[in-house]
Design a binder for these strands. Structure first.
Length: 474
RNA sequence: GGUGUCGUAGCCAAGUGGUAAGGCAGAGCUCUGCAAAAGCUCCAUCGCCGGUUCAAAUCCGGCCGACACCUCCA
């Protein structure tokens, strides 16, 4: 049974049921996603993987926001750059968002995020959104004003239950700019925005317009899951107003319970500061890869802190993550080359392994405690290395299997083994290694050390073991 | 102004009433021709002050210090 902290109740609650419907807020495809975004998507991945490891059936959707102010501005820029190329602004919008959508999927793959079942795009769900708008008007909680439709917050008695924002108090001392709005109440939020024929627009009973930001998630959840969902995830910044508004419109429009479990992931800081373009500490995944950072290291780094805590992205932290990944890989590679015999399995070690697997799962089931899960992994790595040390790298096949099976079990959530760098050792390198070992056997240590340095420069370090020498990528 | 989060060793980071997980870095040792890798050993009383309790990092109050949301934002 997995337990998750529920933002709605501010307490850890069990996830009931065996078949779960999950919706995670995904990217707005107006740019390449940054490392902070990926924390959130990786969090969704860890949730997904953990639930499956714990035996749940999972149907998981992550949306793509492809129509909003930012994407529309991008589309307008496109048409300015290449006048006449696009039939209308809507097709320019599609052209503008396509490469970022593609990049997003590529980036998820780079980080070894398991594919989600659905990736609904807002523009594919306009009818569903308009349907929700009509329901809200019929139910008396939304009203039209100059071609736009607004949600009347005053009608929702428990508005604010998720974020615990008290709009009555917030009304004064506020940053709302009243002049910009034609709404009955400044706090009301827009469901449907009137838009001229020149803008990105769809036809509706209220004239031409386009959806407000909050609308898509409610409509898509309703369409895809035909009802409420079990878990909804997103970054903490979405709690208010986005998720609060989603709750309001979904509950008022569809009636039934909307979301059982709200789970939010904290922000990532870079060098202890909020990441922002103006501060010059804004990194996309692509930027980092270009700097030579490895995806598996980024993945490990993001797992090393609990999702509910801020995590600080620094060069030092990344270095520490790299060391952790190396330890994991290095044991895996050791196991692939260990000499095997047909001796009986070591019962005590089998027990250690089984306990480690169980503990790993248990830690994750406890509100996705990845730091504790990693602690279990490290303890196991130590035990396994000690086991192999004691047997001078000659172990029973059954024991080797046990160890690999355990690492694979960890990897069902860690997702690191798929990203292991290919260690194809060329014949040239192998020849150098052989020559070095021959020199060493002949006690020509000067020559042996020269060759070792040469290999290191080529990017390989030598591991001398009882069963022979091996090269491992640095 | 409102709401909320956080402050644990040089660094990263768990633990939320029973006497401080794990990792990185560092030191010593084993192994090694020397190294590397691996293993073993060592390395903190939890921002400050007060309170509750047999017992507090963990609960309560105050203070100090970071930060987030309230506006597009993962």
């Amino acid at each position: 049974m997995v337990k998750l902290f529920n933002t709605l109740t501010r307490s850890k609650e069990p996830v009931e049921g065996s078949s779960l419907r999950i919706y995670s807020c995904g990217p707005t495809v107006y740019n390449y996603a940054h490392i902070g975004n990926f924390r959130s998507y990786l969090f969704a991945d860890v949730l997904n993987r953990t639930l499956k490891l714990a035996g749940y059936q999972v149907e998981h959707a992550m949306n793509l926001t492809d129509v909003d102010d930012k994407t529309i501005n991008g589309a307008i820029e496109l048409t300015k750059k290449e006048p006449g190329k696009y039939a209308d602004l809507k097709s320019a919008l599609a052209a503008y968002t396509a490469p970022y959508t593609e990049a997003f999927f590529a980036d998820l793959k780079t980080l070894n995020v398991i594919k989600f079942d659905h990736h609904p795009r807002a523009t594919d769900y306009i009818p569903a959104m308009l349907d929700l708008v009509e329901r809200l008007i019929q139910n008396g909680v939304a009203y039209e004003q100059d071609g736009s439709v607004y949600y009347r917050i005053g009608e929702k008695k428990d508005y604010g239950k998720l974020s615990r924002v008290d709009l009555e108090k917030n009304k004064t001392g506020t940053r709302y700019n009243t002049d910009e709005y034609d709404k009955d109440d400044v706090r009301d939020f827009v469901l449907w925005k009137a838009e001229s024929k020149d803008g990105v627009h769809w036809h509706s009973a209220h004239g031409d317009g386009r959806p407000g930001w909050h609308l898509e998630c409610s409509a898509m959840i309703h369409e895809i899951f035909k009802g409420g969902i079990d878990i909804h995830t997103g970054g903490v910044d979405l709690i208010f107003p986005h998720h609060e508004n989603e709750i309001a419109q979904s509950e008022a429009g569809y009636g039934a319970e909307f979301v059982k479990h709200w789970v939010h992931c904290e922000h990532l800081l870079v060098d202890n500061r909020k990441m922002s373009k103006s501060a010059g500490n804004f990194y996309t995944l692509r930027d980092l890869l270009q700097q030579g950072k490895r995806p598996e290291v980024i993945r490990y780094f993001l797992l090393s802190a609990h999702y509910s805590q801020k995590v600080n992205f620094t060069a030092e932290a990344l270095h520490q993550a790299e060391a952790g990944v190396e330890k994991f890989y290095s044991l895996w590679q050791r196991l692939t080359r260990v000499k095997k015999n047909s001796a009986q399995a070591d019962a005590e070690f089998a027990k250690t392994s089984a306990e480690a697997r169980a503990k790993f799962t248990a830690e994750l089931c406890d509100d996705l405690n990845t730091p504790r899960a990693l602690a279990v992994v490290h303890e196991y790595i130590r035990a396994a290395n000690a086991f192999a040390d004691a047997r001078q790298d000659v172990v029973a096949e059954a024991d080797a299997d046990e160890m690999m099976q355990t690492l694979r079990h960890f990897d069902k959530v860690l997702g690191l083994l798929d990203l292991i760098p290919k260690t194809g050792v060329s014949g040239d390198l192998q020849a150098l290694l052989d020559e070095r070992n021959a020199a060493r056997a002949a006690k020509d240590f000067k020559r042996a050390d020269e060759l070792r340095d040469q290999l290191l420069k080529a990017g390989y370090k030598i591991l001398d073991t009882k069963t022979g020498s091996h090269l491992e990528k640095v």
